[in-house]
Amino acid sequence: MKITLKVWRQKDANSKGAFKTYEHSHVSQDMSFLEMLDVLNNELVQKGEEPIAFDHDCREGICGMCSLYINGRPHGPLQTTTCQLHMRSFKDGETITIEPWRAKAFPVVKDLVVDRGAFDRIQRAGGYVSVNTGGVPDANEIAIPKKIADEAFDAATCIGCGACVAACKNASAMLFVSAKVSQFALLPQGQPERKERVEKMVAQMDEEGFGACTNTKACEAECPKGISVANIARMNREYFSAITSSYEVMAKGGGD
């Protein structure tokens, strides 16, 4: 296969970026998309040109490190992570445009690498159950209806890749935030901090500069783990009920 790549190159966060075109003639259908880039990078290094920087790690679709906005879609044409995308999804001679995730809250670090630290800070605002190690009850003392456990699990499968933000025309992070809010809103372990959690996480989400949800559902359609926008509705519900009924002690940092 031969393809033409239009790749966003940007030296660092403070430089201006631009597209650069590469003709890539050593492509096989069996290559993963990232392997296709590996091969290109190898050729670039041998030619003395700086290789394209992109994020990746596990290459089995679970770590959430890989990104890339390919031909106008996060993770490319399939509903999967870029590392699981293979070149057989493209046509011989095709032109492929590769861009980094674009969001104010995800500044570009270099080329196709962005900083997703905003996601960590949102989780840090309350995406956990405050239990110390040790001194917890026996695991089977908490019975959880299977359907609830399964629904919580569906939300918990989020890999934090940021495709939802990248797909959303508003760069909204609501699918990501709502997935964690949902997991703990559903499970009994999450009940003691249920209200503070959603209030704090939403506040942090807004602080980071993500946009608002306009229910286009592009996030759900592009999420490699198929997380449902029903979680966003649940987060809305949780938030409205929390803010209208919780004590106003949050300012004193009553979380932990």
């Binding site: 040790g134 917890v136 695991a139």
Partner: peptide, 22 residues
């Protein structure tokens, strides 16, 4: 055995039976 207790307390969604137990 303590690990399982700890993880469940953290909200790790292990597979469950219909009776609600692990």
């Amino acid at each position: 055995v303590n690990i399982i207790d700890q993880c469940v307390a953290q909200g790790v969604p292990f597979a469950r039976e219909y009776g609600g137990l692990l």
